[in-house]
Nucleic acid binder design. Structure first.
Lengths: 185, 185
DNA sequence: TGTAGCATGTAAGCCGTTACATGATTGA
DNA sequence: TCAATCATGTAACGGCTTACATGCTACA
């Protein structure tokens, strides 16, 4: 058993977004990422998307189609090739489990908060709750918009997962505020 | 109002860990990070810790003390200076709110899972539940070990926050498995 | 005697970001 | 006509990781 080689995850993000549509420009991939993958991974920067597309094309995993008809503006769409789809499936099915990575600035500041003013911590936590509430609203709307579209069934699954995830974030934050209140009212 | 300048967050991780003890070596800082900050941020690599310490020392935020007595093995401890403590407090209290960043490989694979074998997805989700259960056990033990130590009071707060956070992760994952089962039993 | 842990670094490299730069198209 | 959006890139840099390298110390 030789060692399996895997591309960086960002490559699979791009590959994966292309699996939802026949052909997309780099710009459209980015837009799609902002509406979906953003909630569970990072939406790659524009320049990153173009770099991934270059790499994927060189590897034969995507195919570029020049759609700049005549002398109009440049427009290139990309579509998954058969090897590209196979590689995507291989990653989804067989890549080794990686636990989620979180960078939780609020929790970190709270952890170090012994040296800080209590009220400042509380308003930080409140800002965080507002943010979580906003995200949950977005996710609920996404879930509603998906409806019964088969192609996006798993996106609905993930949207509901996300709503639960950020809902827990909200109630945990509230619980922390309560604990702080009890400690020094 | 000029623009505030902030160090990268990893600097505050190191600074913050030093706020818990009088003086620590780079190695000890890393050990402490693995036992605490790991759950809410990344534990920086050893080499990263040393680089931060260099930078912080150059900025006068920490002070190095050579403890290699005689010709023994090299050992340098670091302690927070007064400006270092002030800068840490400034960050905890006044740095702009940053939402948490998650890189959730499992959710991403699920999102793209339309093209994948259902059973492979389910065993991925089960691996994830095992991982979450393990983390929760660790956090509970940390919380018990802290007890009433004033200095670690906020660490307890964060340990309980983490247990709730990863508990939600566990039940959300379970809910997704149930949804998958209902979809195609 | 040997191995695990303590302790400190250097080098190389990828990933991903921000900033910069350019220009077409569409609609108000 | 002007602004927002579409569309594509380049350059530079910072951050962080892995791999490499070294050697002491304590303990079994």
């Amino acid at each position: 058993m030789g060692e399996q080689e895997w591309l960086p995850t960002s490559s699979y993000v791009v590959l994966g977004l292309l699996s939802f549509d026949a052909a997309l420009t780099g710009y459209e991939i980015r837009q799609l990422a902002l509406g979906t993958v953003r909630f569970l991974w990072a939406a790659p920067a524009m320049s990153q998307v173009y770099r991934e597309l270059e790499r994927l094309e060189a590897a034969g995993l995507v195919e570029a189609i020049d759609e700049s008809e005549g002398s109009e503006r440049a427009r290139t769409t990309y579509r998954l090739t058969d090897p590209g789809l196979a590689e995507l499936r291989r990653w989804v099915e067989d890549s080794p489990y990686e636990p989620p990575v979180i960078r939780h600035q609020v929790a970190l500041r709270l952890f170090l908060g012994r040296i800080a003013d209590r009220d400042k911590l509380v308003s930080l936590l409140e800002a965080h709750r507002d943010w979580a509430a906003g995200l949950i609203a977005e996710l609920d709307e996404i879930d509603r918009n998906i409806g019964d579209d088969e192609r996006w069934a798993n996106a609905g699954l993930v949207a509901r997962w996300g709503a639960r995830f950020y809902g827990a974030e909200d109630s945990s934050t509230e619980a922390v505020v309560r604990e702080l209140d009890e400690r020094d009212p």
